[in-house]
Design a protein around this nucleic acid. Sequence first.
DNA 1: TCCTTATTAGTACGAGTGTACTCATAAAAT
DNA 2: ATTTTATGAGTACACTCGTACTAATAAGGA
Lengths: 195, 195
Amino acid sequence: MPRRIDAEARTEAIAEASLRVLERDGLAGLSVRGVAAEAGIAAASLRRAFATQHALREYCLQLIEDRVTARVAALELTGRALVDELLLQLLPLDKERRMELVAQVQLGVLSLTDSELRPAAIRLSDAVDRACGAAIQILTEAGQFSRGRDPQYEAQRLRALLDGIAMHGLWSGELPDASPMLSMLARHLDELAGP
Amino acid sequence: MPRRIDAEARTEAIAEASLRVLERDGLAGLSVRGVAAEAGIAAASLRRAFATQHALREYCLQLIEDRVTARVAALELTGRALVDELLLQLLPLDKERRMELVAQVQLGVLSLTDSELRPAAIRLSDAVDRACGAAIQILTEAGQFSRGRDPQYEAQRLRALLDGIAMHGLWSGELPDASPMLSMLARHLDELAGP
DNA sequence: TCCTTATTAGTACGAGTGTACTCATAAAAT
DNA sequence: ATTTTATGAGTACACTCGTACTAATAAGGA
């Protein structure tokens, strides 16, 4: 019957264009016409995929969560090496991860004053929380987490530290030097194995 | 001769209105007309104090830095108690500090894609860095910083942790419960005294 | 009182915004 | 070949935006 269209691929392509726009131009550039131009489609087509601006912004957060989750799920490692790679997925170490983080921060800050967007932002934040909790558990199972430490506290502290390192990475240039972020994270994880 | 006006108080009052607008309505609300209404003055008067939007945004960051600096300088404490209070000035523990932090994050995120605003944002960030370095030094002088630890690394880690805790505090409701933030920070500082 | 200045209200311009249409075209399934 | 649908380009509306004016008013020093 109709002209079939892969709606899912369309929406994803649009959201990916949105992430590029968010990194290049910030929130002010996330307009219907701007994103449509970046995606190479007509504004009316974008409007068919996302009926409102809110739907587009919400899906962007969802896409970021999906992409990070997919990368983490694809890791074929165990123990400390897995933890390292897991946490590295949340730092701006390459262009893709930096783009995701910038977009996440932009939309997250918007959600501070846009109550409609808050649930989606909180969903993403909770996913990061779970990842940090999982990291601590993996370390524990690998015997690299001191029995004298409080897993719940350390998971929260790891989360805070990770956010702080990521923020600092965003501010220190287009593509920040990876080593300071890596070494700080590694040093902190090393410490968790000790008393 | 002329009608005298306290220009400094004017600009400061406008910037304070801007912080209120930033917390309530976000970056989208930081418009000439919106800020003027919040400050209770005419838009043309605001335009006399700040010739461009950029000047207004830049001064907002400056005001935040000045206010935090003033609060820190007013602390009449020593040792660990000083460090505690010093760092608490950078967490959203009451309405004023939350407002400053929200405004700082909003403008900071804007500075990611607005190169004109970056210098001011970096200035503020550097001030926080210095505060964390000073905190470590105070602990050292008070004998509450283990000789086995690396002061520079701990200063950076403290900075990252502080940012992460602050971010988490911003997301967990209008006025987050203070105790989780306080206890995490205190626990971390306690640890620095040990090996 | 006079003179200088700041503030105010109002208007205007060009641009960009979200949203909502129309209409012709291209493509796929029947 | 016909029918069904999504796309593309364009237009429109009512807003808000930053910026730049004008003219009238208010206030304080000489």
